[in-house]
């Protein structure tokens, strides 16, 4: 059932830019239009591109913010989230904790 929702209405997470839009909704309480505007401006794409796997695949790999397939050498986990922090201008809790650990 969750997959049916994702296919019908979802932004497909890391396949496109769903995780980035969701992060802005959660971190800044942005409504859907504002969150999409914010992320698309940061990425330099249109709002419709945010759900377009073809467009987002290349952008995600270029920015090293995590890609859906397992590409050797690409940032994963906290490393990818640290790049997302820089892209969106937000702090992510686990990245803060990681920085505290290595300080």
């Amino acid at each position: 059932m969750p997959i049916a929702h994702i296919m019908a209405s979802g932004m497909t997470g890391m396949r496109a830019a769903g995780d980035l839009v969701a992060r802005m909704q959660f971190s800044k309480s942005m409504r859907i239009g504002d969150a999409k505007d914010f992320v698309s401006k940061k990425l330099g794409v249109s709002n419709a591109d945010l759900s377009d796997e073809y467009v987002m695949r290349e952008i995600r790999e270029e920015l090293d913010i995590g890609v859906i397939t397992s590409v050797p050498g690409c940032a994963k986990g906290i490393a990818a989230k640290m790049n997302i922090e820089k892209l969106l201008g937000i702090n992510i809790n686990c990245c803060d904790k990681f920085r505290e650990t290595i300080a």
């Binding site: 969750p2 929702h5 296919m7 019908a8 932004m11 419709a48």
Partner: peptide, 21 residues
Amino acid sequence: RIVGVEPGMEVPVTHDIGAIR
């Protein structure tokens, strides 16, 4: 059998219950 939103109208899908699914 299946329908979907118009392109550009997609929204984030959050998940409950976690990996218990």
